[in-house]
Amino acid sequence: MHWSEYLLPLAEGAWVTVQLTVYSTILGGVLAFVFGIGKLSSNMAIKSVSVGYIELFRGTSLLVQLFWLYFALPLAGMAIGIDLRLPPVVAGVLALGLNIGAYGAEVVRGAIQSVHQNQREAARALNFTPRQTLFNIVIPQAIPEMMPSFGNLAVQNLKDTALVSLISLGDLTFRAEQIRNFTQDSTTIYTLLLLMYFGMALVVTVVMHLIERFAGRWRMVGS
């Protein structure tokens, strides 16, 4: 088997990896905002749930979360008579998104808190409601602050997708493993694997950088 013949199956795997990354990063982004804002809420119930989520998912291993969703949850569901079997893709996106969302929530919280107090005072003096202040004044200024950390998290997330091969999802790593079992050509396959992950990480970095520029475009005007 010539090495160029590896490319088609690897490309198929890479496509699965791309989908997993995109879906779970979007899910993670949404969760990051919901729970990052939630952690700053003055409502104790909302705050507790947010802190609980963040600490639970930051404090446990992604691999264990993945196994729990894929292997343990269906059994737990069976015990109470509900079908909680998740397709591997769903389990993968959920585990990755929940995990990255917990880290992202801390980024969102930090960026919101970093917006200068005098912005909130100006908003109060103009009689904006707390909600208007958050969404019209504070968050638009916080988003550019979040983006470098979000970029790191997105790359981290891409690399973490390799774990889903362990629940038999046909991602890039899973395909590579299959070919290696068949050909024993470890050097070529793992080298290709490294390069492909690296190439995808570069794309993620560029995309996140573009979003960062877009979100902070007002900073660039005239300078």
């Binding site: 005098n118 005072e121 100006a122 003096a125 103009l126 009689n127 904006f128 208007q132 019209n136 007002w218």
Partner: peptide, 28 residues
């Protein structure tokens, strides 16, 4: 009933001058 002018201006940096002035009249 009150308005305030701040020592550090406290303009909203992500809004144009126009929006700085119209945002509160429109939203509030």
């Amino acid at each position: 009933k009150l308005g305030m002018v701040f020592q550090q201006f406290n303009l909203f940096p992500h809004m144009t001058v126009m929006r700085n002035i119209t945002e509160a009249p429109v939203k509030v």
